[in-house]
Amino acid sequence: MEKPFPLFRLPRIVIEEVIRIMSPFEIINFAMTSLKSKTLIKSLLRNGRNSYAELQLNTYKESEISIIGFEVYFEFKVTSDKTKDGMREYKEYMETEKIYTLWIYSDNVLDEWMKVVKTVKEIFKFKKHLVRFEIDNFPTQNKSIVDFIKSLTPSIESCEFYGKAETDEDVEYFLNNLNVTEFVGFNLKLSDRFTFPQDNFLECFTIDPGNWVTLDQLLRFHGSEFCIHDSPLTNYELNLFLIFWMTSQCHQNLCFLLININDPQTLDIIFNLPHERINPDVERIGRLPNNDTIPLRGEIDIKRNDGMTGTIDFKWREDQMLLQMVVSRID
């Protein structure tokens, strides 16, 4: 069959079956052969079989587009290394997750990445979107990356920031333009003046380092889970925060808090509030706000005025002491 194959002259049901057999890699490449192919693929995939759990967009050096299905990952990596063009890899993770990776070469990684992302967004449906934003890789194009993502989806469920540039501008631009609805992870250094610009409720924040997380900033976050490292909060401020929580003046939906302690010598300042030290031999069952249960052994209880209990204990991460609080209802 040397001549080009007239696929589109076949009955629709046959084309559909051929597409069904293809992997997402082939469907994406196929959709990118022409605008007409994309239109046809879109109409063929309209009736299901094109839904995936999550789309992950990573602006790493080898920019990635990951299509996450049920226990199957398809990673499309755009690389500037010509020797990797067309390379494929298959990995299994934890014996349940299958990861297929395909590298494609481009001398303009970002342009090609955008082309693929646009095609992927047009032909597949995703329940969730995660953006891993590496601010150092394309420093002059960070804003256009944000504008590009915004043109595809005005809101995303999760985002994570990485980088060493110590600049707030691109992160602020990202958060001012893309509405994040579930999770924000800051894994980069921002200035002490940085303020989190969104005031919508998020399920989870992870901030490392949290040099910019002042008490005022912490009180303004709307969320239920916080993991904060390297914050400048003093024990006195942590005490105030806990008192505000106990009197229902802040963080009504708090489920979990992990935050660094800057002065482990003066923990009594934190506990200058009504609290109860529980015998470490006593095991209790707490009911979490999502109705799951959690076993609790010992620790220190503080009570909110509506009966919810914050169970506090302390951990170490390298040389940093961490306060951990789990909120539950203990009957």
Partner: peptide, 14 residues
């Protein structure tokens, strides 16, 4: 296993 350019050679586009 074909990329976009290779596919263009294999199929007749409508």
């Amino acid at each position: 296993g074909k990329n976009t350019q290779e596919m263009i050679k294999v199929i007749t586009l409508p």
